[in-house]
Design a protein around this nucleic acid. Structure first.
Length: 278
DNA sequence: ATGGCTATCCCTGATAGA
């Protein structure tokens, strides 16, 4: 393979079954190398594998009945796939999958991770503590399995707006779930492994919202949060040329299709034209 | 202040998401 760039997408689809036609159209239109999904909301056997294969992709799937569920779609075949953290914690939630690829023209393997960070529900709740612990477990997983100079893309729905620029109304959302100091610290601790927020790095001033509430006409008023991110280790982040939010996928209508997810896809493009560096 | 919408499954209400 000699492609000069790779495209990595993260998209919380809020049920892969409900979003199938939109997703297939997206694959056809954008032709990403990697499409990382969150909130499949179904067990493995409910995943639309035949349609994905028909579209020219394969899928590494980590499903769960009713809730959560993550996947990585790609035209490439991984050499290694891991599901969950394998850290001995008894946690049945399907929120993390990682796949490693040896791409032609790439001197080092590329690892792509699709993560669905817990929502946290309410500050101080049991689910909030679980969210904070989940960040620590993810941080430990990174340190155990990778080095900061590996090629790693950690993408997904992080359920935290990292700073006030990522929030449409920071005053109303002050110390709210998704913006609280402890959540932001958890997210920051994760990045200290050596991860760059590619969107924020390229566009310091752009809100870049990726989620809008289904209620209250939030999307037409652009009342959003940026909680879906593409993180990359430094050697990979240096190759990032563009990150964009595909807001058309949040729209409703005959052109875009019905029933959008409440999240829009985030599309990152990396230029790998100099293989001596990668 | 609350909930307003959309998804799941036990399915015609409860639970969860953010």
């Amino acid at each position: 393979m000699t492609e000069k760039s790779i495209k990595i997408v993260t998209w919380n689809v809020n049920s892969v079954g409900q979003r199938l036609s939109r997703m297939l159209a997206f694959l056809d239109r954008e032709s990403p190398d990697f499409l990382c999904l969150q909130e499949l909301k179904g067990a493995d056997e409910k995943f639309p594998m035949a349609a994905v294969v028909e579209a020219g992709y394969r899928a590494e799937v980590f499903g769960q009945k009713g809730y959560n569920g993550v996947a990585i779609l790609s035209r490439h075949t991984p050499v290694l796939v891991t599901r969950n953290f394998g850290d001995g914690v008894d946690d049945p939630a399907a929120r993390f999958i990682a796949a490693t690829y040896e791409l032609a023209g790439c001197l080092k393997p590329l690892t792509v991770m699709s993560a669905y960070i817990p929502n946290g529900q309410a500050i101080g709740s049991e689910k909030f503590i679980y969210k904070l612990e989940w960040f620590q477990r993810l941080r430990k997983y990174l340190a155990t399995h990778h080095k900061p100079d590996d090629l790693v893309a950690l993408v997904g729905d992080f359920n935290v707006a990292a700073s006030d620029i990522d929030v449409y109304d920071p005053v109303a959302w002050r110390e709210h779930i998704h913006t609280s100091t402890r959540e932001r610290q958890g997210l920051h601790q994760m990045t200290t492994f050596g991860l760059v927020d590619t969107f924020r790095h390229l566009y310091p001033e752009d809100p870049g919202y990726s989620w809008w509430d289904y209620r209250q006409m939030s999307f037409p008023q652009n009342k959003g949060l940026r909680i879906d991110m593409v993180y990359a280790t430094k050697p990979l982040a240096e190759k990032c040329r563009e990150v964009r939010v595909d807001r058309n996928e949040r729209k409703q209508g005959s052109v875009e299709g019905d029933k959008p997810s409440d999240h829009a896809p985030v599309i990152a493009t990396f230029d790998l034209s100099n293989p001596r560096i990668i």
